[in-house]
Amino acid sequence: MRPILAKGHERPLTYIKFNREGDIFFSCAKDHHPTLWYTDSGERIGTYLGHNGAVWSCDVTRDTRRLITASADTTFKLWDVQSGKELYSLDFEGPARYTCFSTGEQMCLLTTDAFMGHESCIRIMEMNWEDDSMRRVQDIYGHQGRITRAVWGPLNKTIISTGEDRTIRQWDVETGKELMCIEDAHKKTIQDLEVSLDGTQFITGSLDRTAKLWDIFTLEEKKCYTTERPLNAVAISPLLDHILVGGGQDAAAVTTSSAQAGGFEAMFIHKIYEEYLGGVKGHFGPINALAISPDGRSFVSGGEDGFIRVHHFDADYFQMK
């Protein structure tokens, strides 16, 4: 497997998102410009200019027409994917962290960090696609410290969120009440959460060096994958029973050891047997973002080193037992 190195960001990567078909993907980085790429060639299509701070995450509509981004400049912005035009901007009191469209894209959730006396918050917005605007529906407070991820539960009835407080919480969308809280879901900050493509399970990755697989209906812990490195990013393969995890030694400590010591490879683990399958080396800083294409035939990793690596699996990967 020969990776394609896509160098388009000047600062560490933060998030990578495929569109539904998987032919293009979006990357967010601490420089201010979300970027659009071709999956096949790793060729850059364009950038979205307008943010004035690190961009933490993004989401794209099912039809790949609209992109929403969350930035540390305290704004969420809605973009026209094709033209790169900014359509709508929404300003909050604190840095914007995560965003995600609901099933059907009639709603959108946004999370903001605690800042200057304002608590961290999950905000539910209603989308108005006629004029590409949003209306505030509900604010949900409750997490201690930063909310790292928040996703829609089945049928948009609940929201599942994770944070620095090591908990997984489930919220009722209608009332904004907390339905369930799993204390100590992990031993340290939960860095990433991803729902499987079929919508039956989700995976969390934490700085406590473990990743866990959960039942999305019951919030039951199903599997626990232990590694030797702090994890920043996790992904579930839609094709094989594999998961992909990435992370590595904290960026602040990296210079004290060689690249190999950091554990900066992307690791494949068998989803059911919890066995280590193999690793893909390449980054020389921790991996911050991982995404597997919806067809399960490629994956993209983004590192603290500012590089995006696009990998297309070889035939023998699919023959692996």
Binding site: R62, T103, L155, D198, G199, T200, Q201, I216, F217, K222
Partner: peptide, 24 residues
């Protein structure tokens, strides 16, 4: 794992209509 996935997909199937309505 398979038993769990069967159950989960059964739930998913039961919600199919609702979901399709959402996606519209």
């Amino acid at each position: 794992y398979r038993a769990w996935q069967r159950e989960a997909h059964a739930i998913l199937e039961s919600q199919r209509e609702e979901r399709e309505a959402l996606i519209g």
